[in-house]
Computed example of a mutant assay.
Amino acid sequence: MRTPAWLLCLTLLTFAIGTDDFVIAGVLPDVAEDLDVSQAAAGQLVTAFSVTYAVAAPVMAVLTARLPRRTVMIAGMLMFAVLNALAGLAPNYPALMACRILAAITASMMTPAAFATAATLSGPERMGRAMGTVATGLTLSLVAGVPVGTWLGGTFGWRSTMAFVVVLSLVVALGLALFMPPLERGPALTLRQRLAPLSGGAVLVTLVAMVPAASGGLMAFVYIAPIAESLSGASPDELAVLIAAIGVAGIAGAALGGRGADRFGPERTVALSLGVQTAATLTLTLLGWLWTGRVPIVLAGAVLACWQIGGWAFNSPIQTRMLRVAGPSGTEALALNTSAMYLGIAVAGMVGGAALSGAGATGVLVASVLFAVLGMLVFALSFRFFPSADPAAAPERVRT
């Protein structure tokens, strides 16, 4: 079945946002030298974007709840383009930091709207598949967007990287204006009515489960360089190939997760995807303990590919579940889910760093397994006591 143009535009939206979030990491030395700051200070541009996004997402979802989603995304991408253009012209570090923070706030109001819109326009029978397609934009940003932006930065200077994001943003805004169909208006709800489902057990327990699950799933990625070096003695070139390969696996995982959510339901797909990822992480741990000598890079890569497939297959079904249990607060619930995920990433960085210092790369993998198992247990409780609505139930209607 042919992918509709509006769905491709939403996928490109997440691609642009994901690229902007992480591409600074690829041009840190250039930014640091040009703005006369340390690389550690330049690295805070990535941290500031991620933290701001996590904090702002639920706030912006509430503030824009009454606004037409099509307008929010088009205007948001135009503002995103302007802010990245200003970032490319920034004369100093404080100005660049301010642009990054404002860009993160702008991005935080668009991604939940994009996923909710995909769910609405696709219909309940293809909801997971549509959101899985949108999620591939985030994965593709790591595989293609960041490398392209890094190459541009290395060839023409880091400011050209910002120009790349500007072009992407303008293309998305134009595509949405041309191809996004009219959307049915949702019910006019008060702020109290809109927030009420967010205080229910179904949403809260799912958010609690999301933090350790995200930590366990992403800890190995945060520290993939020392893990690959410890297990297989991977060189920088081999590491680059390895990251690209597991990125492709992540794209496949995002698509499989969407299809699984539609066919088997979000709960079963979440359980399966987390199970695959946890099993792969445990396998890496056992290889680190039991394998004599270096683990062949091909074997380590194959296990990491399975790990990445499970991790990205998790994204779409958990968002499908959120839309079902949150009712008219679907977009706000997706925003909170994003915040919980980013909190999990922060925990992964801190705990993984402590594990790496205390027990090496294998310690990181052990910590990752423990967090993943904890997430699976809390999700199991959530599914047991707060099952989602019937699959035929329509998702939140998104305002025009």
Rank of each mutant, 00 (worst) to 15 (best):
residue 183 L to C: 05
residue 184 E to D: 09
residue 184 E to T: 14
residue 185 R to F: 00
residue 185 R to H: 07
residue 186 G to Q: 09
residue 186 G to W: 09
residue 189 L to D: 07
residue 190 T to C: 10
residue 190 T to A: 10
residue 192 R to W: 01
residue 193 Q to I: 00
residue 193 Q to F: 03
residue 193 Q to K: 11
residue 194 R to M: 11
residue 194 R to H: 11
residue 196 A to T: 07
residue 196 A to R: 13
residue 197 P to K: 07
residue 197 P to N: 08
residue 199 S to T: 13
residue 199 S to L: 14
residue 199 S to F: 12
residue 200 G to H: 10
residue 201 G to H: 06
residue 201 G to Q: 09
residue 201 G to T: 06
residue 202 A to C: 09
residue 203 V to E: 10
residue 203 V to R: 03
residue 204 L to I: 00
residue 205 V to E: 10
residue 205 V to H: 08
residue 205 V to M: 14
residue 205 V to F: 12
residue 205 V to N: 09
residue 207 L to K: 02
residue 208 V to D: 03
residue 208 V to Y: 05
residue 209 A to E: 00
residue 209 A to V: 01
residue 209 A to Y: 12
residue 210 M to P: 02
residue 211 V to S: 01
residue 211 V to K: 00
residue 211 V to Q: 04
residue 211 V to M: 02
residue 212 P to L: 06
residue 212 P to M: 02
residue 214 A to E: 06
residue 214 A to P: 03
residue 217 G to F: 03
residue 223 Y to L: 01
residue 226 P to R: 13
residue 229 E to H: 12
residue 229 E to G: 06
residue 232 S to Q: 07
residue 232 S to A: 12
residue 234 A to F: 08
residue 235 S to I: 04
residue 236 P to H: 15
residue 237 D to I: 08
residue 238 E to Y: 04
residue 238 E to R: 15
residue 238 E to F: 04
residue 239 L to E: 03
residue 239 L to T: 06
residue 239 L to W: 10
residue 241 V to E: 07
residue 242 L to M: 11
residue 243 I to G: 00
residue 243 I to D: 01
residue 243 I to P: 00
residue 244 A to M: 15
residue 246 I to D: 00
residue 246 I to S: 03
residue 247 G to N: 12
residue 250 G to H: 07
residue 250 G to I: 00
residue 251 I to R: 14
residue 251 I to V: 15
residue 252 A to E: 05
residue 252 A to L: 06
residue 254 A to W: 13
residue 254 A to M: 12
residue 256 L to E: 01
residue 257 G to E: 01
residue 257 G to S: 10
residue 259 R to D: 02
residue 259 R to A: 05
residue 260 G to F: 05
residue 261 A to D: 04
residue 261 A to H: 02
residue 262 D to P: 01
residue 263 R to C: 07
residue 264 F to W: 15
residue 264 F to A: 12
residue 266 P to N: 11
residue 266 P to M: 15
residue 268 R to D: 12
residue 272 L to E: 05
residue 273 S to Y: 08
residue 273 S to M: 15
residue 273 S to C: 11
residue 274 L to W: 01
residue 275 G to T: 08
residue 275 G to R: 14
residue 275 G to N: 13
residue 276 V to I: 14
residue 277 Q to K: 13
residue 278 T to I: 07
residue 278 T to L: 13
residue 279 A to V: 06
residue 279 A to S: 14
residue 280 A to R: 13
residue 280 A to W: 09
residue 280 A to I: 05
residue 282 L to Q: 11
residue 282 L to K: 09
residue 283 T to Y: 06
residue 283 T to K: 02
residue 283 T to H: 04
residue 285 T to K: 11
residue 285 T to L: 15
residue 289 W to L: 14
residue 289 W to C: 02
